Structure formats: structure tokens, C-alpha cells
Simulated assay, not measured.
Amino acid sequence: MGTRNAVGKRHVHAQGCCRVSVPALARSGVTVSILALLLAGCVRPTGDFDRARPSVIHDSVMPAIGEGAARMREDPVSKFNYTNDEKLLRDRGWTLIRPPWTKDWIGGTMAELARTRVIPETEGRIPPDLYYHYLRSDRFRSSDARFDKIASDATGDADLVMPFCEVALRVREADDERLRVLKNKPLTTEEMYEGAKARVWENRVMIKWVGQALRYRITAYKNALDALEIETPSRDRQWKVNTAIRELQGQVLLAESECQTENRYGTEEPVRRSRIYKGWGNERPPPQK
């Protein structure tokens, strides 16, 4: 929603966020960096089940600013419409990129600035120590509940990796097909050529960013567990948390490999010998009749 000023210009604003007059900012020639500072306190609003809610600021204003910032950095920018899977990739990726603690407005702001490309995606790193800060400050009835919270968050993250990877693999296949068609098309405009390459780059950066964000989450969970073991020891809960973190680590390896399941641990697999044929290279020739 918005309000009108004395001259009838609409001010776009969101609950809990800064108020911005988009036409006025554009006319005054405000730079991208200043706009980023004005929007820095804006965390993406959420609704039921912490899902992102529609927002003019976050769905229109910040992406427009981010597009300009990306061009200034000379990062590829595609004007292509998103496919259904590309939209789903970003929706599912957002749940793994945002801070694990929804009240973390510092990390939430950094993630949102990176999501909208106001800052580079790989710089949208959330400080891992903030998770323990918010975990410690929240009022739980039992000290064991904080251990349970870490285990629940780690397990929830692990459950979300495979659904994300299923979409990521479909997007990669579509990108490969896009590049194949682009290469074989004799009549392709420069705009179409650059747009296709930029979209492939954007998709791959998104997939890589999720792996990076999950690695930071593991660090946050481990730091919180180490601190709680000193502040409020609970041997019964420590095993549960460690198990949940180990399960998440296995899924993070998959995400960090850009969801490629072949040889995900990076080890050389030995050649498997047949259990039927023996003495390879020394077999006798078949009998001649």
C-alpha cells in the first residue's frame, strides 16, 4: 500500500521498512550506493510459515536498483522472463539463503541486498555468530529447548536441500539446451545471445550461493552448540544436535557440488573387477573348431 503527498506523488512503503518515494529519488539522481543505504534496513517481509510476502519494495524497487548495481559491476544481467523452474529455484533457494533465525534483521538485510543484486550474491554472507546471539536472547522455558532448536533448524535445512537440487538439475538441463539451441541458430541477435548467456550465469550463481549459505549455517550451528555446552550443558541434547548437524553436512556436500550426484566427495573411484572373469589380460583365446 502507499500514501499520497500534497502533489499526488505516491510513496511506496512496507511494514517495518523504510519509506521511499521512487519518482523523487530517480529525479534527484540518487546513486545506487545511497539507495542501498536507504533500503539497508528493509528485511523481506514474511507471512505464514515464514514464507515471503508480496512487497513493492522487495519485488520491484530493490530488484530495479540491484539491476543497475550489477551492470555497474559489469556482472551479466538478463532481461529474459523466468521459466517456471527458474522461479521455483529462487523461491526454494531463498529459504536456504536467508538467516536461520527469522529475527536476525542484520543477516536478513544482507541476504536481501544480495538476493536483489544490490551487492554481489557471494558477498551476502550472514555472520555465523548472530545465530547464537538471537538463540541466547530468546526466552525459552527450558535450557534444553535451545539445543532442540538447533537440531530442529539443522534437520529442517537438510530436508530442504534435495527438493532444491531437483529443481536445480532441471534448470541446468534447460540451460544446456538453451546454449545448444543458441549455438545452432544462424539468426540470433546480440541481445538474445547476451541475454541467454547472462541467464545461465545467473542460474549457476544462484545454485552456488545456496551451497555457500548452507556452509555458513553449519558454522553457525556448531558455534551455538559449542557455546551452549559451556553456558547450559545438557549431555542428553548434545548427541541429538551433533547428529542433526552431521546429516546436514552430508546434504551440504551435495549442494556445494552444484547438486551433481556423481562422485560428490571428489575421490577417485577404483576400477571394479569382475567377480566372474579372473586374470584380466591372460584369458585364453576361444577354442577353434
Rank of each mutant, 00 (worst) to 15 (best):
A6I: 11
A6V: 12
V7Q: 13
K9V: 11
K9A: 11
R10L: 14
H13F: 11
A14I: 04
C17G: 09
C18I: 02
P23H: 04
L25K: 09
T31D: 09
A36V: 07
L39N: 07
G41V: 05
G47C: 11
G47E: 09
D50C: 06
R51P: 02
V56L: 15
I57Q: 11
A64S: 15
I65T: 08
I65W: 06
G66W: 01
G66C: 03
R71I: 05
M72K: 10
R73Y: 07
E74H: 14
P76K: 01
V77N: 04
Y82T: 10
N84T: 01
D85Q: 08
L88P: 06
R90W: 02
D91Q: 08
R92W: 09
I97F: 05
I97A: 11
P100K: 09
W101T: 07
T102L: 05
G107Q: 03
T109E: 09
T109Q: 11
E112H: 10
A114R: 03
V118L: 14
T122W: 10
E123M: 07
G124P: 07
R125N: 13
I126L: 10
I126T: 10
D129R: 12
Y131D: 00
H133E: 14
Y134W: 09
L135D: 05
S143H: 08
D148N: 12
D148F: 04
T155S: 15
L160P: 04
M162D: 14
P163R: 03
P163N: 04
V171Q: 07
A174K: 00
E177Y: 09
R180S: 13
V181K: 05
K185M: 12
L187P: 00
E190C: 13
Y193S: 08
A198P: 07
N203Y: 02
R204N: 14
W209N: 12
W209F: 06
G211M: 10
R217F: 02
R217H: 15
K222E: 15
L228Q: 03
E229R: 15
I230A: 14
T232A: 07
T232F: 08
P233S: 05
R235W: 07
I245H: 02
Q249I: 13
G250N: 12
A255Y: 04
E256A: 11
S257A: 10
E258F: 03
G266R: 02
P270G: 09
W280H: 14
K289T: 13
K289Y: 13
